[in-house]
């Protein structure tokens, strides 16, 4: 398993390629936002945007990049005599590193975007601000908000990665990418309903789990508020559990799946 993890994290075809892909797509998105910036400046009436532009696109694009990277890792592993068991264990270990790197790059891109927009007199508010409830945490522009934003991005990145794994599993079995992508879209909506309200089946489950554990934190301090909004780190932990539950499903699907590649010639 060491070989495969080493390959996934150190080799040019692994993490480095993923970082290059992420940088590429984030730069591409950056160009799009610069056009948006010009449009806003021409309009001249908007002084701030309550939308984490780069973070949201970064999360979605990280899922696409990870699907490409993970698919390559699986195929290279299989062609080089690595068992499915080892590949699955290796991917489970490598995915959090990919997610952390991806979230860090996305946050960095967001910061750069925020600075550029600010230079032009427009304020952008990232996930860290948008998801914070001012009653629980009076968000200010300090390092905690940055950590909070990173956690939020990381949480949704895990969601995107889980979707990427489901896509690979579907593609491996059906070999019809379009159908797989369509089914996946429905699946993601049902499981994650990826939005900042954390609705959706999985997040509802996570919220309930958090709700059940929440009072333990406040014993002897104060009664938990009736409508609970949880800290991002808690949700991140629970998302990680959810991610690995879905990864288990992926592992079951891939355990005996034929991996043969595309016909040529």
């Amino acid at each position: 398993m060491k070989d495969f993890i080493g390959y996934a994290l150190k080799n040019h075809a692994g993490l480095i390629r993923f970082i290059k892909m992420m940088c590429g797509v984030l730069c591409g998105t950056g160009v799009f936002y610069l056009i948006t910036l010009i449009a806003l400046k021409i309009d001249g009436t908007i002084g701030w945007i309550d939308l984490p532009l780069m973070e949201l696109s970064g999360i979605v694009l990280s899922g696409v990049c990870f699907a490409t990277a993970a698919d390559s890792l699986i195929r290279m592993g299989v062609s080089c005599g690595v068992s499915r068991k080892t590949i699955l264990k290796g991917l489970a270990a490598a995915a959090p590193v990919y997610a952390a790197v991806s979230a860090a790059l996305t946050e960095l891109a967001e910061e750069v975007t925020v600075i550029i927009f600010r230079l032009f007199g427009i304020r952008l508010r990232g996930l860290g601000y948008v998801t914070v409830d001012d009653l629980l945490w009076n968000a200010t522009e300090n390092w905690r908000t940055k950590v909070f934003g990173f956690c939020a991005v990381l949480m949704f990145t895990f969601g995107a990665f889980a979707a990427a794994f489901m896509y690979i599993a579907g593609k491996t079995h059906s070999r019809k990418r379009g159908v797989t992508a369509a089914v996946l879209t429905v699946f993601v909506y049902w499981i994650f309903s990826v939005n900042i309200d954390c609705k959706g089946w999985l997040y509802d489950l996570l919220n309930r789990a958090a709700e059940a554990t929440e009072p333990w934190k406040y014993i002897g301090r104060f009664d938990p508020p009736p409508s609970l909004i949880f800290s991002q780190t808690e949700l991140l932990t629970l998302t990680l559990i959810g991610f690995y539950l879905l990864y288990g499903l992926f592992a079951v699907i891939m355990r005996n799946a034929p991996i043969r590649g595309r016909e040529t010639g």
Partner: peptide
């Protein structure tokens, strides 16, 4: 070595060769 493309085609030849060192 299969007749089909199992090795990702977006990889460079030198990358594949260096990758193989991890496993073989």
């Amino acid at each position: 070595m299969g007749a089909d493309d199992l090795i990702p085609t977006n990889m460079k030849i030198k990358e594949v060769i260096s990758s193989m060192g991890y496993f073989y």
